[in-house]
């Protein structure tokens, strides 16, 4: 639910990083936080457990500047990936404008990816949203590891509609900005 405030001339868009536990959602946000100019981003808020597993969400606001008179911002959120935290995961999807699914490319995580994707569809449906109608991209993360599934196989299981997908190594930043740019542009197009 992008909010366009014609009084203060602001547009805020919400982008949610979704996916299985330990897939690299928080690492994506941390990389973005480190690399964008400090004056264009706010604080990175992480509600995490003592072992740095996301408990509720991470949040990073990024300011695109003033476009045609409108101060335009993206609010980036991650959800907790662990199956156990579904109640809080669903809350973060409320009012989402764009979704990034961060998949874990390792062969043994295929089932976890599939389960997380089903969960994404289900949680969106409970708000009356249809993922096929929302700006959506996929990142296949951890491509640097030795035991990864081929992208074609991942596409077959996770990407039947062939939305844009990117190979990533979030720890070193590979694919992180490509993914973000793609979803951000889709969200902007949906406003225009």
């Amino acid at each position: 639910m992008s909010m366009i405030n014609y009084a203060s001339r602001e547009i805020n868009c919400k982008i949610v990083y979704y996916g299985p536990g330990l897939g690299g959602k928080t690492t994506n946000l941390e990389y973005i936080y480190q690399k964008v100019k400090p004056n264009t981003r706010g604080k990175l808020i992480s509600l995490a457990t003592e072992t740095e597993r996301t408990l509720f969400f991470d949040f990073l606001p990024v300011d695109l500047g003033t476009i045609r008179g409108f101060k335009t911002r993206f609010h980036l959120y991650t959800v907790p990936g662990q199956v156990y935290y579904n109640a809080s995961r669903k809350l973060i999807l409320k009012g989402v404008d764009g979704v990034v699914f961060v998949g874990d490319s390792q062969v043994e995580r295929l089932d976890a990816n599939i389960e997380a994707m089903h969960n994404l569809y289900e949680n969106l449906a409970e708000y009356g949203y249809d993922l096929r109608q929302i700006p959506f991209v996929i990142q296949y993360n951890k491509r640097d590891l030795p035991n990864v599934s081929p992208v074609e196989e991942l596409d077959q299981h996770l990407n039947p509609d062939r939305v844009p997908s990117y190979e990533g190594v979030a720890t070193t930043g590979v694919g992180v900005f490509d993914t973000l740019k793609a979803v951000a542009k889709l969200v902007i197009k949906s406003l225009g």
């Binding site: 639910m1 992008s2 909010m3 366009i4 405030n5 014609y6 009084a7 009012g95 989402v96 404008d97 708000y127 949203y129 249809d130 096929r132 109608q133 929302i134 949906s190 406003l191």
Partner: peptide, 8 residues
């Protein structure tokens, strides 16, 4: 099918 926008 997506989230509705609103404005004021």
């Amino acid at each position: 099918g997506g989230a509705p926008s609103w404005s004021f």
